[in-house]
Design a protein around this nucleic acid. Structure first.
Length: 402
DNA sequence: GATATTTGACCTAA
DNA sequence: TTAGGTCAAATATC
């Protein structure tokens, strides 16, 4: 077993993890024994509560999926240069165990044995009770915009939805899939009961013109202030071309997490490489494509490293001058409670790079970064994307840290 | 002036 | 009844 892991230092939902590990191998149970007494005791109560649902396949699957996701979170946390290969192997085995268990309970998702552990969980999940399996475009064509609005509101729970979690990691750059490539407009913000931070509501910019009903919600995690959850709802039906580069038009299909997103990601990266300008050069310095743990057939989730702006004035942080060279002046974000920060201006990115994806991506980050970059002595901000929520068989599965 | 954001009020599902 | 989600007028920014 080798290295002992100080799991208590990681901000996970340990009670849930303890519950989720019950059906697993002794290896992982052994690890959970290192949890603090409070965590393990709460885990015990959690187990008792779940005993009521024992035998229910959905409950079992829910627990397994939660365990799988938590293991993946752990993998992310342990994916550091200081972590040993043994540690990485261990977490990989844990993930594989979860996936095999899911297969045993007749999980229909594409989680093939062996290579399955390389797949993002989101790629393995299909939302079943939502209209995503059919063509929203064809459905929407039968309704006028007013009906869409009305229906979307009254039946919002039936919309396809999925959640991305983004970690803003000091000193790691922006790591994760590139922006979803759509332009969003904020239409509301709400304080959520029990949540430390307000939730932002966004909808597709093209809603009024094309009736695109896609929306998303962005909320900062209470447990880990470096994590942001982006909850997408509805599929884009807009047909606005993604002006990436001079001639590339990326199809708007497959906006939701799917393996077919590969081309879009690759096109963006490819187009970036073709941009002969200073800003791109600066961006490229921080660009890194991580291929480790990626299935060869799935590059849609290729992490994307991107040098992000951080708080400089307020936090005394230092940012490499070459990265700030083409950045806009610091400005006061109206949503940041007075925290000023440097940022890539979306308009400048559009005009210089001609890449609205980057602009949109940055606009998202601007919403999140001010508070998320409060960690001192950070030179960069990293984002890690993965999903923690989905719908299955009419049930909504979450992996929240309550 | 056009577009985006903010924010209090309103509506609806649970 | 309440909390989450949306609307829309006011305000800010480009």
């Amino acid at each position: 077993m080798g290295q002992q892991l100080d799991l208590s230092s990681y901000p996970f939902n340990w009670p849930s993890l303890a519950c989720a590990t019950l059906p697993l191998t002794s290896n992982f149970l052994l690890r959970t024994n290192h949890l603090s007494s409070s965590a393990t005791s709460r885990g015990s109560s959690c187990f008792c509560a779940h005993m009521d649902n024992m035998g229910d396949p959905k409950s079992i699957m829910k627990e397994l999926l939660q365990g799988l996701e938590l293991a993946r979170q752990l993998q992310v946390y342990l994916h550091t240069p200081s972590s040993s290969q043994e540690t990485r192997d261990l977490i990989q085995k844990i993930i594989s165990t979860f996936e095999k268990a899911l297969e045993m309970v007749n999980w229909k998702g594409p989680v093939p044995a062996g290579e399955s552990s390389q797949l993002p969980i989101t790629a393995a999940i299909r939302m079943s009770d939502s209209p995503i399996s059919s063509s929203p475009q064809s459905e929407d064509s039968e309704r006028d915009l007013k009906d869409q609005d009305h229906n979307a509101f009254r039946k919002r729970n039936t919309l396809p939805r999925w959640t991305k979690r983004i970690r803003v990691t000091p000193g790691m750059g922006v790591e994760g899939p590139l922006d979803d490539g759509y332009s969003w407009r904020k239409y509301g913000q709400k304080d959520i009961l029990g949540a430390m931070y307000p939730r932002g509501y966004y909808r597709c910019t093209h809603r009024t013109v094309q009736g695109c009903m896609a929306t998303k919600q962005v909320q900062r995690s209470d447990e880990d202030s470096t994590i942001f959850e982006i909850n997408y709802r509805g599929k884009h039906t807009c047909t606005v071309a993604h002006n990436v580069g001079s001639s590339s038009i990326i199809p708007l299909e497959n906006q939701e997490p799917s393996l077919n997103n590969t081309n879009q990601q690759q096109n963006i990266l490819q187009t970036l490489e073709q941009q002969p300008n200073d800003l791109l050069s600066n961006l490229r310095e921080g660009l890194r494509v991580q291929t480790e743990n990626l299935d060869s057939t799935d590059q849609s989730f290729a992490p994307f490293l991107f040098p992000l702006s951080t708080n400089i004035k307020n936090e005394g942080q230092v940012f490499p001058p070459h990265l700030l060279e083409n950045f806009s002046s610091p400005y006061m974000s109206p949503a940041t409670s007075g925290i000023s920060h440097y940022s890539v201006s979306p308009s400048r990115v559009n005009s210089v790079v001609g890449n609205p994806n980057l602009a949109t991506f940055e606009s998202h980050i601007n919403d999140m970064i001010p508070a998320a970059t409060s960690a001192p002595n950070s030179e960069a901000v990293g984002l890690e994307f993965h999903f923690n929520q989905f719908e299955f068989d009419g049930q909504n599965f979450r992996f929240d840290n309550p």
